[in-house]
Design a protein around this nucleic acid. Structure first.
Lengths: 204, 204
DNA sequence: ACTATTTTTTATCGTTTGATAAAATATTTT
DNA sequence: AAAATATTTTATCAAACGATAAAAAATAGT
């Protein structure tokens, strides 16, 4: 039987999760230190370990929180109607995620570059199923002649790659352009260009 | 006056650089350990430090080797003729890099996600200049009416993002599809789809 | 206000990590 | 083959790291 979490507990756990997300985003699981996380949360190391028993435990909590947000954008995939509407809606969702959770996107990227030791199972089950559904929808559009014949999985990868790129490589993008997705004009311009190219590339 | 590098020195330094590239690719600068690198190179830790005095020194060597290869594909950008030929050639070069140097691509990605502490200066100078030249070429195509009006920098980002995605996220891609760029059919299919969509998105 | 519980701090431990010194071995030069 | 140089191994160090124990302080329940 689980005790109700106290007010302080809720506040501090979230404060730690936010700090941990930033640190893991920059340095990955192995490169991050719990000292760093504690510092960023304005807390002592043993105090952090009072809330999360091990480094791995806080990492798992961060991963879960991030993955849920990431999967959210995938799940609302099929609701709308035409291919054009659906793709635009999907790209919108992915851009929103990159703008609103850039650190989460990088945590995810780090995990995968480390070989996805934690997420591998989940990717092979839940994500695989979701992707299967989505690619079948796209395949349907192709056979119905609604879009040009393309390989659905690579279209999905393209959309993921481009949208996540703005979060994962924001340091490079900022160095080259002086802008990030927080700049609204830049955000709109990026989204517009991506939608324009991808739609133009698949619509007849 | 620099002594000539001995045969053993050349062999072992390259063996270490290759091992270091793999380890830094997985764990980034902070997460990687010189023990790991030495192990992977079949060498003892003090022996590694005989060839590279510090962890940072071997990291710099890896970064330099990687960046040179990465910049190579950018430099051959303008040689060909029509927009179509040029873009196809460029995407080809980028896909080749992702297939032939996936670890290098990830080293690069890790460095940028850590905030590009080492590469920031270089990105702000050499790369910025190269990108400036390339975007000017694309801008020229637009004003000449050779391609649809698009924002050049975002087209560049798209090409980088998609091609590098196959290297950086290969663990995810392999989990979802069972394939990597080493599979020639998969390689051709990925390249074909990307070229098809991007060209279709920018050509009139 | 007093008690029980939760939260925070202080002190510390065993490992891992990056790095050095010096001895031992192997290779090259003469 | 002997001497000189280059390479590898063994032993070790100080700092950083993840983690624990126990005391002190703060909060909540009565």
């Amino acid at each position: 039987m689980q005790k109700k979490r106290s007010r302080i507990q809720i506040i501090n756990q979230q404060k730690l999760l936010d700090a941990a997300t930033e640190v893991f985003a920059s340095y990955g699981f192995r490169g991050a230190t719990i000292d760093q996380i504690a510092d960023m949360a304005g807390m002592s190391k043993p105090n952090l370990l009072y809330y999360f028993k091990t480094k791995k435990e806080i990492y798992l909590a961060v991963l879960e929180q991030t993955l849920n947000k990431w999967l959210q954008s995938l799940q609302d995939w099929m609701v709308t109607g035409t291919p054009e509407e659906t793709i635009i809606n999907y790209i919108n969702k992915k851009f929103e995620f990159s703008r609103d959770h850039p650190a989460g996107s990088r945590v995810f990227a780090n995990e995968i570059m480390e070989g996805a030791p934690i997420l591998k199972n989940l990717l092979g089950e839940d994500l695989k199923r979701l992707v299967g559904e989505n690619t079948r929808v796209i395949k349907g559009w192709v056979t119905a002649g609604q879009i040009r014949p393309i390989e659905p999985i690579h279209l999905m990868f393209m959309i993921w790659a481009v949208t996540q790129h703005y979060a994962d490589f924001s340091a490079q993008i900022e160095t080259l352009t002086g802008k990030t997705l927080d700049d609204e004009d830049f955000y709109k311009q990026a989204k517009k260009t991506v939608i324009q190219i991808i739609l133009g590339g698949i619509l007849k």
